[in-house]
Simulated scan of single mutants.
Amino acid sequence: MNDFRRIEELAERLSAILPPGLRGLRAELEDNFRAVLRANLERWDLVSRERFDVQSEVLARTQKRLKALEARVAALEAQVSGGGRREA
Results as ranks from 00 to 15, higher is better:
Thr62Pro: 03
Leu25Val: 02
Phe33Lys: 00
Ile17Ser: 08
Arg38Glu: 10
Asp31Ile: 04
Arg61Asp: 13
Ile7Ser: 01
Ser81Met: 09
Gly83Phe: 04
Asn40Glu: 14
Arg49Trp: 13
Arg49Glu: 15
Ile17His: 07
Leu69Ser: 13
Arg34Ala: 00
Arg5Val: 08
Met1Gln: 07
Gln55Ser: 11
Val54Ser: 06
Arg6Gln: 11
Val58Ser: 05
Leu69Ala: 13
Arg72Leu: 06
Arg43Glu: 06
Val47Gly: 05
Gly84Ala: 06
Arg43Phe: 01
Leu10Lys: 14
Val47Asp: 07
Arg49Thr: 15
Glu57Ala: 10
Lys67Pro: 02
Val47Leu: 05
Asp53Ser: 11
Ala60Pro: 03
Val47Asn: 05
Ala11Leu: 00
Leu14Trp: 06
Val80Ile: 08
Val36Met: 05
Leu46Asn: 01
Gln79Ala: 06
Glu77Asp: 05
Glu30Leu: 01
Glu12Val: 04
Met1Lys: 06
Val47Tyr: 04
Ala88Gln: 12
Leu22Gly: 02
Glu70Leu: 05
Arg61Thr: 07
Gln55Arg: 15
Ser56Met: 15
Trp44Asn: 13
Met1Trp: 02
Val47Phe: 04
Asn40Gln: 14
Ser56Pro: 04
Val54Cys: 03
Arg86Thr: 11
Asn40Thr: 10
Asp53Gly: 04
Leu14Tyr: 12
Glu77Cys: 01
Ala27Val: 13
Trp44Tyr: 14
Arg43Ala: 08
Glu57Phe: 05
Lys64Asp: 10
Ala60His: 12
Pro20Thr: 01
Ala88Asp: 08
Arg65Asn: 11
Glu28Gln: 13
Leu37Met: 01
Trp44Ile: 11
Asn32Pro: 02
Met1Ile: 07
Arg6Cys: 05
Ala75Val: 04
Glu70Gln: 10
Gln55Asp: 14
Ala71Gln: 08
Asp3Cys: 04
Val36Arg: 09
Ser15Asn: 03
Ala39Gly: 09
Arg13His: 11
Glu12Ile: 02
Asp31Asn: 13
Ala11Trp: 00
Trp44Gln: 15
Leu10Pro: 03
Pro20Trp: 00
Ile7Tyr: 00
Glu8Met: 05
Gly82Leu: 07
Ala68Cys: 01
Leu25Met: 08
Ser15Gln: 03
Ser81Gly: 02
Arg6His: 08
Arg86Pro: 02
Arg86His: 13
Leu46Phe: 01
Val58His: 09
Glu87Asn: 12
Ala27Tyr: 11
Arg86Asn: 13
Gln55Asn: 14
Gly83Gln: 09
Met1Tyr: 05
Arg65Gly: 02
Ile17Lys: 05
Ala88Met: 08
Glu50Gly: 08
Ala27Leu: 12
Trp44Glu: 15
Val73His: 02
Phe52Glu: 14
Phe52Arg: 15
Val80Arg: 10
Trp44Ser: 14
Gln79Ser: 06
Ala71His: 06
Arg51Trp: 08
Asn32Gln: 12
Arg6Pro: 00
Val58Glu: 11
Arg85His: 11
Ser81Leu: 09
Arg49Pro: 14
Leu46Glu: 01
Gly84Lys: 06
Arg13Lys: 13
Glu30Asn: 03
Ala39Ile: 03
Arg38Phe: 03
Arg34Thr: 00
Gln79Tyr: 03
Val58Thr: 06
Arg38Gly: 04
Gln63Leu: 15
Ser56Asp: 14
Leu59Met: 12
Gly82Pro: 03
Ala35Ser: 09
Ala68Leu: 07
Ile17Trp: 04
Lys64Leu: 07
Val73Leu: 06
Ala71Lys: 12
Met1Phe: 04
Gly83Val: 02
Ser48Thr: 12
Val47His: 07
Arg38Pro: 00
Asn32His: 12
